[in-house]
Simulated assay, not measured.
Amino acid sequence: MAEIYRVDASFDHSFFKDSSCAFGVFDGVHLGHRFLLGCAQKTARESGGKSIALTFDIDPDETFHPERLKKLMGNDERLAMLATTGVDAVVILPFTREFAASSPEEFLLQTFDGTPPAFLHVGFDFKFGARAAGTVRDLDAWASNMGTQVCAHGLKSEDGAPITATRIRLLLAEGDIEEANRLLGRLYFMTGTVSPGRGEGADFGFRTANLTVPDQLRPLSDGVYAAWADVDGARFKAAVNVGVAATFADRATATCEVHLIDFDGDLYGKRVKVEFAHWLRPMRKFDDLDELIATVKDNITWVKENL
């Protein structure tokens, strides 16, 4: 597990000396990100320096486009996952409007404060500084004067298309959970706190945990999914309803309702991590409750037998 460092007044920038840094936001820590981080580890091994995942404390779009942002994971989850990727350290830059407004030159000066890394790994479309004016070409020009080798990479999957967080978000918005999981290199997950729901589930014979998940952390399309739910370190098969329950639309809100199979206990107030494995069906309005109950029970049976 890598050490996590936050850049503040006490941070010693000489930490970057002779290091290999992979620089990015890393939302989702997907396969493209892991390739970039692996490249930093490789040059670190070859040069004898340490490998560093260099990132921000928040996604920059949280500052500039919060109304349209759909993140693949929370910031704490992102930083914790980066620490498990095999790098020696995770270094976190505070992202502020003042920092974002700096010129590309000022951006690099503030980031490294005169002690640049030996290797800097970025995506080929890496942008930095005010209005994203800095490009890889600008990075190369700076690096040539600082003794840094810039390594710009194309992060592509087997089909030749780039692996990006935006591409994965679009797949999730379409309900294509299997392809999104392939590009993530893991199961996509959401984490939320269980709160009281509408209460119909218990009456129908299948209790559900109603998760409170911020809209910004719900890029997944409405629908019913087969998933795994983690509660206090224990893993359960689960049938999950994401979005507004159409049959109860007059009193429902967009949510994430989880039926944990073979679970018996009180979940209120607990944090539950839900890992989505398969899309089962779209949301629909049922003509009567008997049809609804039969369909949900069929979904639960499928999860039991196939997950």
Rank of each mutant, 00 (worst) to 15 (best):
M1R: 08
M1L: 05
M1Y: 04
Y5D: 01
A9K: 10
A9M: 02
S10C: 00
F16D: 03
K17M: 06
D18K: 10
D18L: 04
S19Q: 04
F26C: 10
L31Y: 00
L31H: 01
G32P: 08
R34H: 03
Q41R: 15
K42R: 14
K42F: 07
T43F: 12
R45T: 01
R45I: 00
S47V: 09
S47Q: 02
S51C: 07
S51K: 09
D57I: 10
I58H: 13
I58S: 13
E67G: 11
E67A: 15
L69D: 04
K71R: 15
L72N: 03
M73W: 02
G74S: 15
D76S: 14
D76E: 15
D76H: 10
D76Q: 13
L79N: 12
T84D: 15
G86E: 09
G86I: 10
I92R: 07
F95I: 07
R97H: 13
L108C: 04
L108Y: 09
T111M: 15
G114S: 10
G114T: 03
P117V: 05
A118N: 04
H121I: 11
K127N: 13
A130Y: 08
A132L: 11
A133Y: 03
V136Q: 06
V136D: 06
W142C: 08
S144A: 12
S144F: 01
N145M: 13
M146Q: 15
M146A: 14
G147E: 11
Q149I: 11
A152T: 02
G154S: 13
L155N: 07
K156Q: 12
I168F: 09
L171P: 06
G175Y: 09
D176A: 14
D176N: 15
L184M: 12
G185N: 03
L187Q: 08
F189G: 03
T191W: 00
S195V: 14
G199A: 08
F206L: 07
R207M: 08
R218E: 00
P219E: 11
D222M: 09
Y225W: 04
A229F: 04
D230E: 15
G233A: 09
F236Y: 15
A239W: 01
N241T: 03
V242C: 11
A245V: 02
T255N: 13
C256W: 03
I261S: 13
D264C: 12
D264I: 01
L267G: 05
K273Y: 01
R284K: 14
K285I: 05
K285M: 02
F286S: 03
F286A: 01
D288V: 00
L289A: 04
L292G: 02
A294K: 11
D298G: 12
W302L: 07
V303D: 09
E305L: 10
N306L: 07
N306S: 13
